[in-house]
């Protein structure tokens, strides 16, 4: 290159304009370890008496609609965090995760995710691992424990390992202060993509633990709200941003509510 200045300018302008493979995983530092970073952000603020969080999801290839979600949610001031119920991406490409993260970064509140079946396609699992973190994780805020679980059994050929019920059982047992528990995952246990051999065991684990309040999900692209197994556990499914809806979960000291929002 005869002109070093031109070369430098072109190189700087073009660090992002070369793509080597659709399945490449090349992330900026602020696109890595988002789960632990955002948990730290949430916990930095002392837990209010009433915790309020948003349950949204299935942003797969619906970028325009997800921008509308951001506009809608940013009208609120009293939200503590947002939970993305999975299917962040459509094709499991890092590029898609990055686009969605760029949009979700405009939300005034920190967001956390669970992994969806689409997020496990191609190199998606590796992308999720690098960008967000563990596929199963938990955190506590105030008097609540949130357990985030990978329930995308079909992506593991229903091999009996997903969801990891041993891990879930340990998480439920590891609750010395008897915090109220909310379990969040992409696929609800009564869906055909959840391992049918594990459905009953999952429901029983939750029903047998008096601390469990809700089992929250996405995947089905429509709202549903039911005490599905008549065992005291409320199963709530949120819709996709494509359909312009999300849910607000309000955890007051003696009352927990889920409110559906259509925008």
């Amino acid at each position: 290159m005869k002109n070093p200045i031109l070369f430098t300018v072109l190189t700087l302008a073009c660090t992002a304009c070369f793509e080597y493979n659709p399945n490449q995983i090349i992330l900026e530092d602020d696109e890595k370890n988002l789960t632990s970073k955002n948990i730290a952000l949430i916990q930095k603020k002392p837990a209010p008496e009433t915790i309020r969080f948003v349950l949204m999801g299935d942003t797969q290839r619906f970028y325009d609609e997800t921008e509308d979600f951001v506009k809608s949610i940013n009208q609120y001031d009293n939200i503590d965090f947002v939970i993305h119920a999975g299917d962040i991406s459509d094709f499991g490409l890092a590029q898609e995760f990055q686009w969605v993260h760029e949009i979700m970064s405009k939300v005034k509140f920190p967001y956390l995710t669970v992994i969806g079946n689409h997020d496990l396609l191609a190199n998606g699992r590796k992308v999720y691992n690098e960008m967000y973190g563990a596929l199963d994780y938990s955190f506590e805020y105030g008097d609540y424990k949130f357990i985030m679980l990978n329930t995308n059994s079909r992506e593991y050929e229903f091999d009996g390992t997903i969801p990891d019920l041993i891990w879930l059982k340990n998480q439920l047992e590891d609750n010395p202060e008897n915090k109220k528990v909310i379990v969040i995952s992409h696929i609800p246990p009564f869906d055909g993509d959840f391992d049918p051999d594990l459905e009953e065991a999952y429901a029983k684990l939750l029903a047998d633990d008096p601390n469990v309040l809700f089992s929250l999900h996405g995947h089905r692209h429509s709202f549903s709200d039911d005490e599905y197994y008549d065992d005291g556990v409320r199963y709530f499914v949120t819709t996709t941003t494509q359909k312009g809806g999300y849910a607000i979960v309000t955890l007051a000291p003696n009352d927990a509510q889920i409110e559906v929002v259509n925008y």
């Binding site: 659709p22 970028y63 997800t66 459509d90 686009w99």
Partner: peptide, 13 residues
């Protein structure tokens, strides 16, 4: 896949 994503999201992409 990129092209399809763009075609369906011309406001944000």
């Amino acid at each position: 896949l990129e092209f399809l994503s763009y075609m369906q999201n011309q406001k944000s992409l």
